[in-house]
């Protein structure tokens, strides 16, 4: 009966009635933006094993920066003081507590680093549990960056092979790019620790990235 009467009224009124009904239902349906958080399985996330957390090595990151690959957001989780002293080029300083309030969006590829892996893991968990899609940790954080990129130690002996020399040169080049220096020492002299040079911060290097402005999304 009701359906028949409904079918007989003009199309525009039918559309109108359906719209009003949908509108009334929507009042009780809650906020669509809240929906995002409820869908995450926290238990599943907390049971995740360490090797499932995606990690990125510092040398890979160095490679990206040199090549001008900037399809990610590099986030420094340390405090502001340390950030001002020295930071990995192209990084932004956001503390763990303000990660969710930041302008990171859920589809950004996010790389996190800190001076310890626990802070990075906290950030990872926080973002992941809020449905951020691609969250990665820089393995070893800022310390690895110092030891492996800025001031890498040469592992070659007194008579390096061509292959070793090639590797040596590459390391030297990379560290030079970021304002560091290759640490050469003779392998036998292992007892004498190499002095870590003071960091001149922030490293001033020119990145390939030009204005850094992404083309706007709106019209």
């Amino acid at each position: 009966m009701l359906l028949k009467a409904f079918a007989e009224i003009p199309a525009r009124k039918r559309i109108g009635i359906i719209a009003v009904i949908l509108g009334i239902i929507s009042i009780f349906a809650g906020n669509p933006n809240d929906n995002v958080n409820t869908k995450v399985n926290l238990k599943e996330l907390s049971l995740i094993s360490p090797d499932q957390i995606s990690e990125i090595g510092v040398s890979e990151l160095a490679d990206w920066i040199i090549k001008g690959k900037f399809d990610y957001r590099l986030i420094d989780l340390r405090n502001e003081e340390d950030f001002v002293k020295y930071r990995i080029p192209s990084s932004e300083n956001i503390q763990v507590t303000s990660l969710l309030k930041s302008d990171l969006s859920r589809n950004n590829k996010i790389l996190l680093y800190s001076d310890n892996d626990i802070t990075s893991s906290q950030g990872w968990f926080l973002l992941k549990s809020n449905n951020y899609k691609s969250v990665n940790i820089i393995k070893g954080g800022i310390d690895s960056w110092k030891n492996e990129v800025l001031f890498p130690k040469c592992t070659c002996g007194e008579n390096p092979t061509i292959e070793e020399q090639h590797k040596h040169n590459k390391l030297a080049e990379i560290s030079k790019f970021f304002g560091g220096e290759l640490q050469t020492y003779i392998a036998a002299d292992n007892t004498e620790k190499v002095k870590m040079p003071e960091l001149k911060a922030p490293a001033t290097i020119t990145l390939k990235k030009t204005t850094g402005k992404k083309k706007r999304e709106g019209c």
């Binding site: 030009t210 204005t211 402005k213 992404k214 083309k215 706007r216 019209c219």
Partner: peptide
């Protein structure tokens, strides 16, 4: 000029190669 720059992008690809 930030206005123009916003439409030229970061220079890595042709500005016309755009969704809009």
């Amino acid at each position: 000029n930030d206005f123009y720059k916003g439409y030229l992008g970061d220079g890595t690809k042709n500005p016309f190669k755009d969704w809009l």
